[in-house]
């Protein structure tokens, strides 16, 4: 049996080729416009992003997917994927999430001998679903017999980690600043992972209007480091 902790370290490693390093999910708009410009403004933005966007989309989606897999209801995984795609209104964010989801699904299928991951990837190939990283993470975590809340925390960590890495490059910030922010956001990651358990299913995808506008406006930025 594989130790789930070691597997999480592999899945959350910045070298894990999910493609997340190409996406800022709207943060680049704020960097370009000057409202995120140093470690302090970035960390404050991350806290807002995590407490809302990541909490009600990534964390809740990961929990719902994990529970559907546990209850052997693959149909609900498919429904969740369709909801998540429709909830993502800005095109670049939707496309970026889809690409990362598909790459992760392919990788996890190649790494793990899991019939469910294979089934999900084949559904992506047949275009029945689009692929979502939170669903792939839940599938992988369940296959590795990892605890649900720990899986949600690891999934959040990997998203936070790659956004910080991107901010270090884009703002730019010092490597130590990046690591310090990653450390100071860890209690919030745990808090959101715990809170996901109490969320109602129909709270899925609650969005913030300003972030959506920033994600949409990214399409028109004259200079871009990231695809979203």
């Amino acid at each position: 049996m594989i130790n789930p902790m070691l597997s999480f370290m592999q899945l959350c490693d910045s070298n894990f080729p999910s493609g997340a390093f190409s996406h800022s999910f709207g943060l680049e708009t704020y960097i370009y416009e000057g409202s995120i410009y140093d470690a302090g403004t970035f960390e404050a933005a991350m806290r807002m992003y995590m407490s809302n966007q990541m909490a009600y989309t990534d964390a809740l989606a990961c929990r719902l997917a994990y529970e559907a897999i546990e209850q052997e209801q693959f149909g609900r995984v498919i429904e969740l994927d369709i909801l998540l795609l429709a909830l993502s209104l800005p095109k670049e964010t939707r496309e970026g999430t889809r690409r990362i989801g598909e790459r992760m699904a392919k990788l996890c299928m190649d790494l793990y001998d899991s019939p469910l991951i294979r089934q999900y990837y084949e559904a992506i190939r047949r275009k029945e679903v689009s692929g979502h990283p939170s669903i792939v993470f839940a599938l992988a975590a369940h296959h590795l017999q990892a605890d649900k809340t720990e899986a949600i925390a690891a999934h959040l960590f990997s998203g936070v980690h790659s956004l910080i890495q991107n901010a270090v490059r884009a703002i730019p910030l010092g490597q130590t600043d990046g690591q310090r922010i990653l450390l100071s956001l860890q209690p919030l990651i745990q808090e959101i992972a715990d809170r996901a358990e109490q969320m109602a299913e129909d709270e899925l995808g609650m969005s913030m209007p300003g972030l959506e506008v920033a994600q949409m406006r990214h399409e028109q930025l004259p200079v871009r480091l990231f695809m979203s």
């Binding site: 933005a45 807002m48 300003g210 972030l211």
Partner: peptide
């Protein structure tokens, strides 16, 4: 929710709650 020929194409879920954090801040109402 907008369905076209039975397929969900867009799902807008807006939730504004002034007490939870600063609604005027970045990413919220800005």
């Amino acid at each position: 929710k907008i369905y076209e020929d039975g397929v969900l194409q867009a799902y807008d879920h807006l939730f504004l709650k002034p007490d939870a954090g600063d609604l005027l801040s970045l990413m919220q109402m800005e």
